[in-house]
């Protein structure tokens, strides 16, 4: 394994009103990789990023970025990292070029070097035609690109991207995905990406940590996480149900089925071979007084991983 670019150990952060945003959260990221923090709204993703980028101090715990301690050497950390917050940090009263130039100056760049760096970033993010317009005239996707460009101006070793594609249209999203992949592959930048899109985590992250209520509940490569779930996901919708616990009891008699969760009319379970388990499941349910209205069998997804580790589906948690 390469040298660790980010290390978070036992981070705790509470906000007034007894909100425990981080509850002994730990993870580590190898240099040059894309690491995803996946979790529903309120899980603590942004708070994690804010601790690592020195914006806020944890109540306890240790965090290092690029080998630097975020609490003891915040200024050195700020020089080493780029950070793009969940909401844009673009100054909309200034042009794209001015935003980039100012950001560069704060990082100690200047003169011809800064000028060419700004021009090349504008080019890279296809912002050159709009470079001298006020950023208030930019589309959401353009502002986001400018945000990322601003985070890269000083060639950081580590880049934080907090929900970079939230609110973008599908085209802008896939543009940004390509760019993020390029950052890690071509430029060797370590990227910590937070997202509440399962697909995004699956597509971009080499490794990911699933965060729930301020804790990491599972960590690994997307494939390994899905592989831990043996078998297929079976989802059965009921039009009549004798009750959650009764349904669970009925299915316990089917031996090839495990990890059963019942919420109202929806039954989720795992089966080694989904196709062959379904007839037995239907028979057991109908015999016990339930009526099946539909059945779906799928390969394991990150949603299933989430369900397995938190007992809730991702959407339920996200809306909560």
């Amino acid at each position: 394994m390469k040298e660790l670019a980010i290390e978070a150990r036992d981070l705790v952060k509470t906000y007034p009103g007894n909100v425990r945003a981080l509850d002994e959260l730990s993870f580590a990221v190898a240099g040059g990789t894309i690491f995803g923090l996946l979790g529903p709204n309120g899980a603590g993703k942004s708070t994690t990023v804010k601790v690592l980028n020195t914006l806020t101090r944890p109540d306890s715990g240790v965090a290092r970025v690029g080998g630097l301690d975020v609490i003891r050497q915040p200024d050195a950390v700020r020089h080493a990292i780029g950070s793009v917050a969940q909401r844009s940090g673009v100054d909309v009263n200034a042009s794209g070029r001015e935003n980039l130039t100012l950001q560069g100056r704060f990082h100690g760049l200047g003169g011809a070097e800064l000028k060419t760096r700004v021009a090349s970033l504008l080019d890279r993010f296809l912002l050159t035609p709009a470079a001298d317009r006020e950023a208030r005239t930019y589309s959401g996707g353009m502002q986001r690109k400018l945000d990322v460009a601003m985070g890269l101006i000083h060639r950081p070793r580590v880049l934080f991207l907090d929900e970079p594609t939230t609110g973008l249209d599908p085209e802008a999203r896939s543009d940004l995905w390509k760019e993020i992949t390029r950052l890690a592959h071509d430029d060797g930048i370590t990227v910590l990406l937070t997202t509440h899109y399962l697909e995004e985590a699956d597509r971009l992250a080499h490794r990911l940590a699933i965060v729930d209520r301020g804790r990491v509940v599972a960590e690994g490569t997307p494939d390994a996480l899905k592989g831990e779930l043996s078998g297929d996901a079976v989802q059965i919708e009921l039009s009549e149900t004798p009750g959650d616990s009764a349904v669970a009891a009925l299915l316990s008699s089917v031996r090839t089925v495990h990890d059963v969760t019942v919420t109202g009319s929806t039954v989720r379970a795992r089966a080694d071979h989904g196709g062959s388990a379904v007839p037995a499941m239907i028979t057991a349910l109908e015999a016990g007084g339930a009526r099946v209205s539909s059945v779906r069998v799928t390969r394991p997804s990150l949603d299933d991983v989430y369900l397995r580790h938190t007992g809730r589906t991702f959407n339920e948690a996200d809306q909560a």
């Binding site: 980028n53 020195t54 914006l55 200024d75 700020r78 020089h79 990292i81 917050a85 990082h107």
Partner: peptide, 8 residues
């Protein structure tokens, strides 16, 4: 916050 995460 953008300024605060930079060495401003």
């Amino acid at each position: 916050d953008r300024f605060l995460v930079a060495p401003v």
